[in-house]
Design a protein around this nucleic acid. Structure first.
Lengths: 178, 178
DNA sequence: AAGGTATTGTAGCGACTGCTACATTAATGT
DNA sequence: ACATTAATGTAGCAGTCGCTACAATACCTT
């Protein structure tokens, strides 16, 4: 059922602009009026298209996650890679300037999920799971067990690199890859 | 110069209670009135002992960091350990219930530092550096270069485990350690 | 006891928060 | 052309934010 019911289309266009704003400024400053202004509308209209702020943020984060998934789909290697090779490759593009905003939002999301916030926890878990599967599909592994373990190691590694870089220790990330 | 100038003592006692509150509820809800209530005083008094909120938070975070450092000092192994062994040992106690609040605050701190916030960035970097040195001192390594590299790997690994666990994928952390 | 300083309470300011009531305009179907 | 619904603006509410002016108390020195 294609359901582009006009208002649905409008909602999506709105969410797209909201995603831009959140990627640029983060979740901390994501209050209704600034968000609305960034989307070229009013807080009134945001709450016309969505029941409340929580749903606005959820939709925005899902949009951001979808963009990230799309970007990562383009990054599939032509052939399976070892854990080290994939770590290297992954870090190389996750730290590109255009991707870093996603990582920043991802960190904010994780920090909220860590506190058990019911809005953010399931979204974060889903995205993490997506990362994990993406990695598992790219890894060269002799058997399923090794694949699962290496995928777990990969996830831990890249998330660690993201966090370490976020706190300004980018050179430590480099050193860890050597 | 011991400078327990009465008001200094009072300040420190205050900060101690603020640290408790932040560890329990996080930075998101750390606004003046709730903080003051948790410390058994008023927002008015918080701003009597500190010039502004930024300094209050900075002092509180430094207190939290100091507690963490103290806790980790007790966790030194009797002898140098391999990277894997130390990872295991470290994760074992960082994920204890009493330490997890520190990790949650640490995540919040990192997410703010990632956005370049001038208040949080230097504090986060200093704590990260501390982690790094703690690890380097515990690692068994044939030479300085290996030690530095392994310490970097250790930091990335444990930060990754913290983040992955925060998003609810604790079992992935386990798998990555196997 | 007097005077000065350190500490604390009360009250509030202006800005912002999520959200809503009410009214108006625009689009749509009949 | 008219009635109905969808979309939007205006205004505001009750609450919170960081912060401050003013006044009162408590304490300490002389």
């Amino acid at each position: 059922m294609t359901n582009p019911s006009k208002s649905e289309v409008r909602r999506m266009a709105l969410v797209d602009k909201l995603a831009d704003h959140v990627l640029e400024h983060g979740l901390v400053t994501a209050s209704l009026r600034p968000l609305a202004k960034a989307a070229g509308t009013s807080d009134r209209m945001l709450l016309y298209y969505f029941p409340d702020k929580a749903e606005i943020i959820a939709a925005t984060l899902q949009c951001i996650a979808a963009r990230m998934v799309a970007a990562m789909s383009e990054q599939v290697a032509p052939e399976p890679l070892s854990l080290d090779a994939l770590s290297q490759r992954l870090s190389a593009f996750l730290f590109e300037e255009r991707f870093w905003p996603y990582m920043c939002v991802w960190l904010e999301l994780a920090s909220r999920a860590g506190r058990g916030d019911p809005l953010y926890t399931p979204i974060a878990a889903a995205i993490g799971q997506g990362f994990l599967e993406w990695g598992a599909a790219q890894l060269a592994a002799p058997d399923a067990e090794t694949r699962a373990r290496d995928a777990a190691k990969l996830l831990v590694r890249i998330e660690g690199m993201v966090l370490v870089r976020a706190i300004g220790l980018g050179e430590v990330v480099e050193r860890s890859l050597s």
